[in-house]
C-alpha cells in the first residue's frame, strides 16, 4: 500500500489526497505533527526526508518528496488519463503548470502560513507575488474559455489542474481574495464539482450539488 506522510492543513499534502481520491487510489495516511509539534523537522523525520518537508510518499523502495512528482506517479499508475494529452505542446504546457504551482506555493501558500500559523516573513511581498501569479492564471484560463476550454491543458482535467488548485482555492486564508479573478473562480468550481472530489479545511462542500432534503 502507498503511504502518505500527511498534514491536514498542508496545501501540498492535500494535492496528493485529492489526486488519490479522484483516481480511486487508496493511501495509508501517517499524520505528522507539523504544527505545533514541528515533527517534520525532527531527526527521525530527516531519515525519511532530509529536506524536512511534507508530503512524503512511500511505495516500497520509492520515496518521493516533491508533490508534483507524486502527482505524476499516481497518474502513471492509474491509466495515464490524468497526465494530459501527450502531444509535444500539451506535454510542455503540463510541465509549465507543474512548475507554476511552485510559484503559487511560494506566494499564496506562504501568505496563508503567515496569516494562519504565524509564519514570519514579508506578507506584503507574498501577497503581491500571489496576485501576480493569479493574474497570469486568470489570463491563461480566460484564453482557454474563449477557445471553449475549461481546464488548463486539453479537454479533461489533468495533474496540471490538481497541482495548481489547492493554493489558489485556499488563497483567501492568506488574505488574497479571488473576487478579481472570475475565470479562476469558475475553474475552481469545476474542480470542486468533479466526481469523488474531496475537500480540505478552508474549501467548503458545494452543497448545491445535492438536492435540498425533503422538509418533513
Amino acid at each position: 500500500m502507498i503511504r502518505l506522510y500527511d498534514y491536514v492543513l498542508s496545501a501540498s499534502c492535500y494535492k496528493i489526497r485529492l489526486m488519490a481520491a479522484l483516481l480511486c487510489v487508496k493511501l495509508e495516511h501517517e499524520a505528522v505533527d507539523f504544527h505545533p509539534g514541528r515533527a517534520h523537522k525532527s531527526a527521525a523525520f530527516a531519515q525519511l526526508n532530509p529536506a524536512g518537508t511534507l508530503p512524503v510518499l512511500v511505495d516500497g523502495d520509492l520515496i518521493l518528496t516533491e508533490s508534483t512528482a507524486m502527482l505524476v506517479y499516481l497518474a502513471q499508475l492509474s491509466g495515464r488519463d490524468w497526465l494530459g494529452p501527450c502531444d509535444p505542446k500539451s506535454a510542455a504546457q503540463v510541465q509549465h503548470w507543474l512548475a507554476f504551482s511552485g510559484r503559487l506555493a511560494a506566494s499564496l501558500g506562504m501568505a496563508r502560513l503567515h496569516d494562519m500559523l504565524l509564519y514570519e516573513g514579508d506578507i506584503d511581498a507574498w501577497r503581491a507575488q500571489g496576485h501576480a501569479a493569479l493574474r497570469e492564471l486568470e489570463a491563461a484560463l480566460s484564453e482557454r474559455r474563449f477557445a471553449g476550454g475549461v481546464w488548463l491543458v486539453g479537454d479533461a482535467p489533468s495533474i496540471a489542474d490538481i497541482a495548481c488548485f489547492p493554493n489558489v482555492a485556499l488563497s483567501q486564508d492568506g488574505g488574497v481574495s479571488l473576487d478579481a479573478y472570475p475565470s479562476v473562480r469558475l475553474w475552481t468550481r469545476a474542480i470542486r464539482a468533479l466526481d469523488r472530489f474531496v475537500e480540505m479545511p478552508g474549501i467548503h462542500r458545494l452543497h448545491e450539488l445535492r438536492p435540498a432534503p425533503e422538509v418533513a
Binding site: Y7, V8, L9, A31, V32, D33, H35, P36, G37, A39, M116, Q172, D173, M200, P201, G202, H204
Partner: peptide, 16 residues
C-alpha cells in the same frame, strides 16, 4: 498527531 489533525481540521473549517 491524528488527534491534533482532527481538531485543527474542525477549527480551520470555521476559520473561513
Amino acid at each position: 498527531a491524528e488527534l491534533i489533525a482532527f481538531q485543527q481540521m474542525i477549527f480551520l473549517q470555521d476559520r473561513s
